[in-house]
Design a binder for these strands. Sequence first.
DNA 1: TCCGTAATATCGGTATTTCCGATGATAACT
DNA 2: AGTTATCATCGGAAATACCGATATTACGGA
Lengths: 290, 290
Amino acid sequence: MKPSPDTLRADSVRAFTEAAHGGSFSAAARALGKSQSTISEAIANLEIDLGVKLFDRRTRRPKLTPEGQLLLAQASLMLQAEERFMRTAGQLAAGLEPRLTVVLTDRYQSPDYESILSELDQRYPELEFECLLGEGADALALVQEGRAQLGLVAAQPAYPSDIVRATAQHPSQTALFVAADHPLAKLTPPMPDDLANVRELRLNTYLDEASVATKGRYWSAPSFLLLMEMAELGFGWAALPRWMVERYAPGKLTELSLPGWPQQGVIDVVWSSRRALGVAGHWLRQRLSV
Amino acid sequence: MKPSPDTLRADSVRAFTEAAHGGSFSAAARALGKSQSTISEAIANLEIDLGVKLFDRRTRRPKLTPEGQLLLAQASLMLQAEERFMRTAGQLAAGLEPRLTVVLTDRYQSPDYESILSELDQRYPELEFECLLGEGADALALVQEGRAQLGLVAAQPAYPSDIVRATAQHPSQTALFVAADHPLAKLTPPMPDDLANVRELRLNTYLDEASVATKGRYWSAPSFLLLMEMAELGFGWAALPRWMVERYAPGKLTELSLPGWPQQGVIDVVWSSRRALGVAGHWLRQRLSV
DNA sequence: TCCGTAATATCGGTATTTCCGATGATAACT
DNA sequence: AGTTATCATCGGAAATACCGATATTACGGA
């Protein structure tokens, strides 16, 4: 007996499943755009190679043997995997990037942020999506060096030459907060001088050291979440995204109403002009911009 | 541009994954028993067909592109499905039946019944296993007509000519039970006459009507589980498998100790001499027999 | 019952694909 | 700089996918 080859003949599996589904070799031939003899031979060869009779041909329309039924289920899984492979290859060929990394500022919180992500998941189910948190100069650096393709940052006065920007759909709401049991919370309304006497909690970045030149002492952290925790513990006042306080520290912080606050902060979508965005990045950029 | 074919070239995917894994086309060629040029051309053609560059060849050892990494994962899934397909085809070619049906008597309860089944699952993971419940003549009929391949029945005085039997490893323990609050439970020890005055709950079968000729009135059901429920409700006494009472009705039934009880009942493994058992059926038969 | 329809198996021939071995070019290592 | 291992390319041979024609066989209608 000839040892069965360990590799499958081309398209024999598709012929098999199609014939099993349509109930006829000829129908499978029509469906696959091949001749009837091709299908007949393909299936016959497949049966020989596998050493398993797949169809009972005594009747007019070939009927699956029990063995054929069992193998049909697994053949379908094979074709399913193959189709998925071909589909994502097609998307990649059409310009889909295999992975998309986005840097987010904590300032950003779109009301339909979750729906945007699930939309992204539906459109590009094979895309690997990565989300980083970073502010200001840190985010820009990640985009510049290609670690991230898109960034959502608080609008900067000036951008590096290789960074392109667009305005995001939803501005951020930033307000001043202190711990509810802080003395500052009892002054209504507080004066700007009152704030000067209390420590400020300020956002920093890994890259930017320029701000150390600013007047007065302050504590700083690279994320709003850390700043908010510091504020909760009464270490000072901080300018924080309002959504974050409402969602993660309701009641623990008191908003200070000073002239000019709360601020409407513009959020920018940024990307690098030197690295072309893939189709998913392009889609997401447009979805996030005004 | 030539439209990309919707079908994959033979073995190109295996060449791809092997090259990605081994880090070299030549290594893949060696591993697959083909020449180096074959692998090189196969992958080059695959890249052309997919429209996706899979490897970065600028370096000595081709390195996967990000697109290649994404596709590699899905290619592995394809090959995994294909290997499973080939493996079960091989088992079927070696005589594995696609499905195995066993008729069990409720009398049977092997202490390692569950371990036998999980062993079966490990040996023949693709086998479809079906379990039926049936007693006596019913079970034999199912085996005769091919609806089931194996049966575990209480040993019969005689078998049809096309039925072969072997003794099962574990005999059954059958004892007499009544509801704990039944008057019969208070007679210690009860006399055979006492039982004659109380209704008997007896096993019947769908096929066997001969037993209606027996003396006295009785109630009957085709499964021990139903009989046990009747006994629990106080409708009479019944001969029941002891394991079933201990497991599913502890404390609710009282065992009657009469001369000759409890009985050690021999269980037979039966199959049809006219239908060859598959390898799984053969294995299970030996595993169940003494 | 007989006949037409539609199905499958088989065969010969052609086109495509796979595969090999040789050759040349390139990168890494000594 | 030489050595070695690797990849790309090319021509030819073997395998196989495919088609069209033909024989044969089940199924269904008159």
